[in-house]
Write a protein that binds this DNA or RNA. Structure first.
Lengths: 217, 217
DNA sequence: ATCAATAAACCGACCAGTCAGTCTAAAGTG
DNA sequence: CACTTTAGACTGACTGGTCGGTTTATTGAT
């Protein structure tokens, strides 16, 4: 029991540090964030930070990796529950917007603050984009194979879709505009039309508003 | 005459510094670039660098602003020479890919290295994206007004287009894949379909391969 | 001689990371 | 039970290298 208390307290400290890191990194970016700011924001000490993490860079990478995994889990989960290419894309898009909305700080870190940090981070960024593009490509290939849409260069389209979603989400995370529901409606029509989905199939989709529930980690 | 020589030599030095800055910034990003590296790469001296520029940050911003202007000039120029929404979009896309291809270093700086640099740069980035999104939005609005395409949320679409293009170009600048001509073909079909352009109009577009001529500044 | 242009030594603020040590609680010991 | 020992969690003052930027010296053109 005492063992658990200690362990729990330790876990709590670690989490406090990570949560603080999300806040500071999201707001100031990697280079403008001082480790001492994370220390202050977390209410712990520099020693504690370096006790739980090897360094500043690893805290940052930990946040990104964790969020990438979360996003992928949610996406595959949501997609697998639907059937038919069109409905799946719709589900994925909705999940994407919801997840970014729920973890706005992490979204900002993931989409903006993790870019342009030099060679050390560039590889990671490239790998992550590759990973999600591949995810999209797979579903697109399935839709092509199933004859739901005409053949296309799914690789290019996958990257283009990712870019389109990212850009709109970035804009929204930063300015609060345009509202996610509006984004979902416009984006899904545009993306689905773009790959040759018949207008009728698109119109058949439900207009489900997106709920945004903020959460820290 | 000698006056000109001096002036020419001075201009040349300034340009050598900027060219060197492009190479180093593109390769290592803002923070990992040492001013001394630009000095070495340019074959000039630290004194020369601080004689021509107020500081590291201003060199970086100068490069970005210059390139943004160049890109906008080229885009509006190319678009204004065409008529009809579909042909215009095609021209814009082609110009975009050609320009990014011609100035690959600047493209990398513009699309990657200028992101995630903290508050000081974030405003600039946001403003630039806004500016280009607006450019796209205007042309989309024209197409809607002319009845060429059905009404849509042009603001969201404009951002989505920009994101799509950026992402694909980034990928290409970094890996050399996929080839620009392939990108152009896929992207224009996808984007035009996405806003409801009739298939027949899209098929009518010429298949003009993109030539890539590298150039420094 | 004068002054713009250039070279290079130099300065010092800044900050990631270290480390010697404290505190608390559990485990061993007789 | 009393008491020592061990171990894990945590503290915060301190350091040492790194660069942006400055200063000073030198060049060379007119």
């Amino acid at each position: 029991m005492m063992q658990n208390d200690i362990s729990d307290k330790a876990k709590a400290t670690r989490k406090r540090i990570l949560d603080a890191a999300i806040r500071v990194f999201a707001h100031k970016g990697f280079h403008d964030t001082r480790v001492d700011e994370i220390v202050e924001e977390s209410g712990s000490s520099k020693g504690a930070v370096y006790f739980y993490f090897p360094g500043k860079q690893q805290i940052f990478l930990a946040l990104i990796d964790e969020f990438a995994d979360l996003l992928e889990r949610r996406l595959t989960g949501a997609v697998d529950q639907e059937q038919g290419g069109v409905r799946r894309v719709n589900a994925a898009l909705k999940t994407c917007l919801e997840t970014f909305g729920r973890y706005r700080g992490l979204a900002k870190i993931f989409l903006i603050q993790a870019v342009g940090l030099g060679a050390a981070f560039e590889e990671k960024r490239s790998e992550l984009h590759q990973r999600f593009a591949n995810l999209i490509k797979c579903y697109l290939d399935q839709a092509v194979a199933a004859g739901e849409i005409p053949p296309i260069d799914t690789e290019v389209v996958a990257f283009a879709w990712m870019g389109a979603i990212n850009e709109v989400v970035i804009r929204w995370v930063q300015t609060g505009e345009p509202e996610p529901t509006r984004v979902l409606l416009t984006l899904r029509v545009m993306l689905l039309r773009g790959i040759g989905v018949p207008e009728a199939d698109i119109d058949g989709l439900a207009i489900t508003p997106i709920e945004i529930v903020e959460k820290s980690s």
